[in-house]
Each structure stands twice: as C-alpha cells, then as structure tokens.
C-alpha cells in the first residue's frame, strides 16, 4: 500500500513535469517553430489570404534586410482579438496586418469615428499609450466589411444600399463571420441592429472563408465579406454601400511591440519602406493570385517583393518624421 502511494506521487510528479516542460520553458519541441520568448521575430498571421500574404511580405522584408534574424509566422489566427492577445501575451511580437476600425471598436473600446485620419490617429495613440505597441502608418489600402451578393440577386430584389435589405430581411439567407456576430465592438451585429434598426431572420454564423463559395453556389443570398477579397471578382459579386456608416474605416498597418523594436530597431525603417506601397488594386491582385490562381501566399509575397526589388530604392526614414509619431519615445540604439 505504501509503495503504491509513493508510485502515485511519482505519477503526479511526472504529470506536472510534463506540463511545466511544455509551457514554462521557451524551448519548443524539436522540429517545431519557436515563440517570441526566444528573442525571435514572430509574426501573427491570420486565416484570411490577405493576412497571410502581407505577413509573408513582412517576413521576407525582414529576412532580406536582416538575414541573420530568425523570423516565424504563426498562421491562421482566426480574428483580431486572438492576434491582439498573442501580442500582449508575448506569443508573437509583430502583426502582419491590423485594421484600424476593428481595433478602434474592439481592443480600444471606442465608438466609430468618421474619417480615416481620425481613426488612424486614435488607434496609433491608443495602442502606444495603453499597450506599448507601435502601430505603423498604413500600407495604403483599406479593407472594409461589406454586404455582398450576386448580380442576379441584386436585380431580383432591386437592392442598392445596405438599408434596402430591410424589406427582405425575413426572406434573405444571410451568412456572416462568427467573429462578427457577437463581437464586443459597435461595428458588430449589435451595432448593425442599432444603426440600421432591423435584423435578419435567416442568419447563419459561419466561417468567413466559406461565405463566398456559399453565395456563388446559391446557398446564401447575402454575405458579409471583406471588400478586398479576391473572390469578389472571381465570383462576380457586387457590394452594397454601407449607407448609414455602420462600419468605420479599416485601414491596414503592420504593428510591432515596443519590446521587439528595442531589440531590433532596424524594423522601424524596414517596415516604413512598405508605407503606402500596397494600393487597393495591388492587394486585390495579390489576393487574386493566391485564391484564383492558387499560388501559395509565400510565393505571392516573394514575387511581389522581387518585382519591387524589396523597395531598396525607397529611402530609409524614421517614424519621428511623421507628425503623428513625434511625441513617441522611439530613440533606440541603432546598430
């Protein structure tokens, strides 16, 4: 009996050891990627093609200019809250793409602001002051939520604006991202109910990647999708205007934690080279290359950077030169 008790204690010890081994140490299992605690650069990618491509662009830019650094991507993170939490917890230290509107109403808990500039300013300041994270200037494109449908459906119901959906709210089959339905911010479904004053009877909360296919195969009438998605042109979909301004502007930027910037100050000018370099059309083309032409995101990114020669010609600049960042404490030791 005594022996068994001893054994039991051993068992419990082994169990605890396992868990500790797995979690506390920065050591990853052999053969698997590292984490931000290893002083590596870890980029939070997403489950959308756009987030994957742009994260690859960021990764390859860093590798090009800092060949000795280790850069990983953690891919397929399903939403901004997951990415934000991974930055805060130290699982990652760079986010490939963040959207100003999403973070404004989400993490920062503020009401939607009208203009893109105001939104950007609020998010840059909010992130710096509250989370010690630097939000870079925009890549140059916006990706907003939009209700979309086929041309046939548009004509059948004579729909032009989002508010036109009201009279058919009981018959239309509407598919939305499950992250949107219960999202805490005011641009979620609750916000939609408040601003537009009606809801949908046949509302399907599902994976965002599946809504486009579902519309194309006539399983849905309307879907809430992303305006930059390559599948909009592939499936010949049209978007309804957000005529009551529910959605704030969603400009796109890379985001880096202060801790990482202190270690790798070069990231500042590397990421600034990308400022304004990806237009809406470019992003749609890149998305299309991945989704319609079925090129993997890392290759799309590679081709894009090769075409632009890794933006070698763009002069190195610093955030200090931009008025919005002039009060930031960003004086790191440059190598």
């Amino acid at each position: 009996m005594k022996k068994n008790k001893k054994k039991l204690i051993y068992m419990v010890l082994i169990f605890c050891l396992n868990i500790i081994l797995l979690t506390s140490c920065s050591c990853a299992f052999p053969g698997l990627g590292g984490s931000a605690q290893d002083n590596d650069i870890v980029i939070a990618g997403g489950n959308t093609t756009e987030r994957q491509i742009v994260s690859e662009i960021v990764k390859q830019m860093i590798q090009h200019y800092l060949p000795e650094s280790k850069v990983h991507i953690i891919n397929n993170l399903g939403s901004t809250p997951i990415i934000y939490n991974s930055l805060i917890n130290g699982d990652t230290n760079v986010a490939g793409v963040m959207y100003t509107g999403t973070s404004l109403t989400g993490e920062l808990g503020m009401d939607p602001l009208g203009s893109a500039e105001e939104t950007m300013e609020a998010v840059v300041k909010g992130y710096y002051e509250r989370f010690d994270i630097v939000w870079f200037p925009s890549y140059g494109f916006e990706n907003t939520y939009s209700f979309m449908l086929t041309k046939e459906t548009k004509e059948k119901y004579n729909l032009n604006n989002t508010s036109d959906l009201e009279q058919y709210a009981d018959v239309l089959r509407v598919g939305v991202d499950s992250a949107w339905l219960d999202r805490p911010g005011k641009d979620g479904y609750q916000g939609f109910l408040d601003v537009y004053g009606f809801g949908f009877d046949n509302l399907f909360s599902m994976d965002i990647g599946l809504v486009y296919e579902a519309i194309a195969s006539d399983r849905l009438d309307i879907a809430l999708g992303y305006s930059t998605d390559g599948r909009i042109s592939s499936y010949d979909l049209v978007m309804l205007e957000d005529d009551r301004d529910l959605f704030p502007p969603y400009e796109t930027s890379p985001v880096v934690t202060m801790d990482l910037l202190k270690q790798k100050p070069e990231l500042e000018w590397i990421l600034l080279k990308l400022q304004g370099q990806i237009s809406l059309e470019t992003m749609q083309d890149l998305n299309n290359a991945a989704d319609e032409l079925k090129t993997e995101p890392y290759k799309v990114a590679k081709n894009f950077l090769a075409e632009n020669n890794f933006f070698e010609e763009v002069a190195r600049s610093s955030l200090k030169e931009i008025p919005l960042y002039k009060d930031f404490d960003l004086d790191f030791e440059q190598d």
């Binding site: 489950n47 397929n76 991945a290």
Partner: peptide, 25 residues
C-alpha cells in the same frame, strides 16, 4: 489546431477553403 496557430495540414485545408473552386486542395 490550425486555429491556434500550430501549422500542419489544417493550414492546407484552410488555404483550400480560401481558394476559388479548390475543393481538391
């Protein structure tokens, strides 16, 4: 596990879901 960023074949499945007409992937 792809949802919590582990990588693996789930990444390929998600890619296939995001592609146009790519049930094969």
């Amino acid at each position: 596990g792809t949802f919590v960023g582990s990588g693996g074949l789930g990444d390929i499945i998600t890619r296939g879901i995001n592609m146009v007409d790519a049930g094969e992937v």
